[in-house]
């Protein structure tokens, strides 16, 4: 119990610090960075529920991130419902989709699971591209998101969106943290370490896998909602396969074995992207070399590396 209170305290502290920053520095780029970080970190952490905690390597998790952006933006544009209602409806849409997609995917194992999730994502991508009347096809949803006001606060304003994104990130992380610390979280790790033994010990493997699949999809869609507010719309690139790659790289670089690994990895990747893009148009060359140095030098994510150096054993990890 004490652990929960400690985590919540850390979370509140983090929000307080972030809320104070704009009063110290006028940097709008920092605020943009935090908003994007919030979106991608939620998405990457949700993927790590599958990868790091359950041992399910999904290549198609971007399906739910992208579906989150599209369902939220469409609900805001096409219906008159309020932003919080659209937010909740987005989570429901994603949960229902995840049940259907997960029921098919979790039957498969290892690399086949990875590729069938990717196929699912690309199928959804094809549908979005083809269904021009609803989604705008490859042009994406144009015209912006209207009525970005919650309880009198306009999320169209950058500072407000920044605070909103920070709060959503902290709450999202706290809930996921709580999930992996429950007995459900223990079941996940048992399945990861030895599926047959977990099953032998009375864990209904498919049910646990499906549950975590749906949960992670819901959190990915929360990241999608934040991204949708940031770009004020939704674009097919947000559901294309490189977006799944971004989340995978974030968790591999940050550390699959540490709860905050994906968040750290997201920050590394976004920083690299923003800094390198400013310096050179040979962005790929520079980023590629940095990634190689990273991957071959540490051979694991940054947080996992630090934890091991400090003598600890990472909480998660992939066998």
């Amino acid at each position: 119990m004490a652990r929960i209170f400690r985590d919540i305290a850390i979370g509140i502290l983090a929000i307080a610090v972030l809320a104070a920053v704009p009063h110290l520095t006028p940097s709008k780029a920092f605020q943009d960075f935090v908003i994007r970080c919030s979106s991608m970190a939620l998405f990457a952490t949700s993927l790590n529920l599958l990868v790091g905690y359950t041992g399910l390597s999904s290549f198609g998790h971007g399906l739910f991130f992208g579906l989150g952006t599209y369902s939220f933006a469409l609900l805001m544009q096409r219906t008159g419902i309020s932003l919080p209602m659209a937010f909740i409806a987005t989570l429901l849409i994603n949960a229902v989709t995840a049940v259907a997609v997960g029921a098919i995917c979790i039957r498969l194992r290892l690399i086949y699971f990875a590729f069938v999730t990717l196929a699912m994502q690309m199928l959804m991508h094809s549908v979005i591209i083809s269904w021009v009347g609803l989604t705008g096809g490859d042009q994406g949803l144009q015209g912006g998101i209207p009525r970005r006001v919650v309880a009198g606060i306009d999320l169209g304003d950058q500072y407000n969106l920044y605070i909103f994104a920070a709060v959503v990130l902290v709450i999202g992380l706290l809930i996921m943290r709580h999930i992996v610390n429950t007995s459900f979280g223990t079941s996940l790790r048992m399945i990861r370490d030895n599926e047959a033994r977990a099953s032998f010990l009375g864990i209904v493997v498919w049910r646990v896998k499906l549950t975590v699949f749906v949960l992670s999809a819901v959190f990915a869609s929360v990241g999608g909602v934040v991204m949708s507010l940031f770009v004020s719309g939704a674009y097919p690139e947000l559901i294309n396969w490189p977006i799944s790659g971004d989340a995978i790289f974030a968790i591999v670089m940050g550390g699959v074995g540490s709860f905050l690994g994906p968040t750290v990895g997201t920050m590394i990747l976004l920083l690299l992207n923003d800094v390198v893009t400013r310096q050179t148009e040979y962005y790929g060359l520079a980023l590629g070399i940095i990634i190689l140095a990273f991957a071959l030098g540490l051979r694991r994510g940054l947080l996992d590396f630090i934890t091991e150096r400090l003598g600890g054993r990472p909480a998660g990890g992939i066998s």
Partner: peptide, 26 residues
């Protein structure tokens, strides 16, 4: 490159290959 990550997780291999793709495209 690849000989250094035999037996490593598929995602680590993915990361290394991705880096090579980026480098070669440029």
């Amino acid at each position: 490159l690849i000989s250094r990550v035999y037996g490593a997780n598929v995602l680590m291999q993915l990361l290394i290959c991705y880096a090579v793709v980026l480098i070669c495209d440029d």
